[in-house]
Amino acid sequence: MMLVALAALVWGLGWWINLRLAAGPSAQSRGVRLAVPVIFGVTVLAVWELLVRGLDVPLVILPAPSLIAARFAASLPVLWADFVQTILKGALGGYVIGCGAAILTAVLVDRSDFLRRGLLPVGNFVAALPIVGTAPILVMWFGFDWQSKAAVVVVMVFFPVLVNTVAGLRETTAMQRDLMETYAASYWQGFFKLRLPAALPFIFNGLKIATTLALVGAIVAEFFGSPTVGMGFRISTSVGQLALDMVWAEIVVAALAGSVFYGAVAWVEKAVTFWHPSQRA
């Protein structure tokens, strides 16, 4: 009971600090903007730990954060092998192939108005479908190893990137295109110097959506069959053994990988489209 009371106390304390910080004079400063969510996160973790210990929640329902951290530290080699198999081989491989193919297709499609008007509605339609469902088929075709996971990722990221790129390549105004014309620019000069840069914010929007999809595809595809390594495999077998601390450790890896992957793409975007109004604020 002590620990539960302590949990309530910690929660109150964290919230009070945040209230003071948010209402305080330096609420707009960078430090406070960073500190408030961090304090909130730490409070949630502390309350979680105290409640799990105080109420004696069994491991099969919710392991304490300290237990997860211990499991994480103890099984680093396993987690690393899973990370390499699922993220580096499956997700990243599929991501590069899928996004590359989508951008190339978009460039080709963009040359024909007819094709664009036909493909854009179809692409928008397909982008909203539950494409994860193709996983069992692709696992059947490409085998259990990472190739089939990469194939699922390719199918999942292709249409969002395609639709965004096609829309982006239409971004220039007639005035800008006419200017290129008056310079006697060839199609490809106009493409590389005007239309591709103008499309970059849209392309990166698609690429950022695709990062999450890539991880989802690679993990879910492993539920349909995989070698004895990989994050989806580890999650489904550990759940079967009720080793929830291992499952949570894998989820921590997935969360870290997802954030880093997204952050990396966002960082490249910032470096490449520094001129765009949305990046200058």
Partner: peptide, 21 residues
């Protein structure tokens, strides 16, 4: 200030990995 950053970060992680658990 405390919840919104987490809501945004949570969009970049594959939460579906939680499903079996």
């Amino acid at each position: 200030m405390s919840v919104m950053p987490w809501a945004i970060v949570s969009q970049t992680i594959p939460i579906i990995a939680l499903a079996p658990m």
